[in-house]
């Protein structure tokens, strides 16, 4: 299976709002693709459609060339972090990963591996998730995404709630995952955090892609020194000044 995400002409309407209006892009393996855009641009909806959570009215979304819903063990192909707060408070973090592992035919050994990987080793993961801080939930969500050792990763706002140390750790983790040849799609508002990680940029606005470019090209095109400035320029939020 190829490590790609292909989004082809997605359209979706929620009542009177057009959430996706022909969204199309491809995420290639071996680099981190930043998925950015203002609130309501359709980033989360796109991710949800790719992951089979929402059905698009038109268009297709494929992971490794196949619709998500047809994957037998999806977490072994795609790891996703969507809403890290989605935890049963009475269940421990480790047990949360355990049932996910069982659903993919994986065992407890893999759970302990990803817990270490996410920095949740030791006793933390054996406490009830109800008492976790935002950062710990985020780390648990990342552990869940990594559980199946997937070739494709989709992370929605993964830096949320992480302390500076955690941000540094996650950046390294993302860079490492991309270097291993995985396709990594990260949506984030914190463009500054992605600057040294993202190799590619997909900018969405009003349900469609307005820019799909490599970060190096973008930065080289002008005299802009930060990704954030480049982004604001692209989306026309701020003048050239």
């Amino acid at each position: 299976m190829r490590a790609t995400i292909e989004v082809i002409g997605l359209r979706k309407r929620f009542g009177p709002t057009l959430a996706l209006d022909g969204m199309s892009f491809t995420v290639e393996p071996g680099r981190v693709t930043a998925f950015v855009g203002p609130n309501g641009a359709g980033k989360s909806t796109t991710m949800r459609v790719v992951l089979g959570l929402d059905a698009a009215d038109e268009g297709r979304a494929l992971v490794g060339g196949r619709p998500y819903r047809t994957l037998r063990h999806p977490l072994r192909h795609v790891g996703a972090l969507l809403d890290a707060a989605a935890l049963q408070p009475g269940r421990t973090g480790r047990d949360h990963l355990l049932w996910l592992a069982h659903s993919q035919g994986l065992g407890a050994a893999r759970v302990d591996q990803v817990l270490d990987l996410a920095g949740l080793g030791g006793g933390v993961a054996r406490r009830r998730a109800g008492g976790y801080s935002l950062g710990m939930r985020q780390r648990l969500g990342l552990a869940a995404a990594l559980l199946g050792d997937p070739a494709v990763l989709m992370l929605d706002e993964p830096f949320n709630g992480l302390d500076p140390e955690g941000i540094g750790w996650l950046r390294e983790l993302l860079a490492g995952l991309a270097a291993e040849g995985r396709a990594v799609l990260v949506s984030s508002h914190l463009l500054s955090e992605l600057q040294h990680v993202a190799g590619h940029l997909v900018v969405a606005e009003r349900g469609r892609v307005v820019a799909d470019t490599s970060v190096a090209a973008l930065l080289a095109a002008g005299d802009r020194v930060t990704l954030e400035e480049a982004y604001l320029r692209l989306t026309g939020r701020r003048g050239d000044g």
Partner: peptide
């Protein structure tokens, strides 16, 4: 009900798209 209230249903559906 917990699945729906906590949004856990999405994690479940991700793991088991069917």
């Amino acid at each position: 009900a917990a699945e729906y209230r906590r949004g856990l249903i999405r994690t479940t559906v991700l793991a088991v798209p069917r």
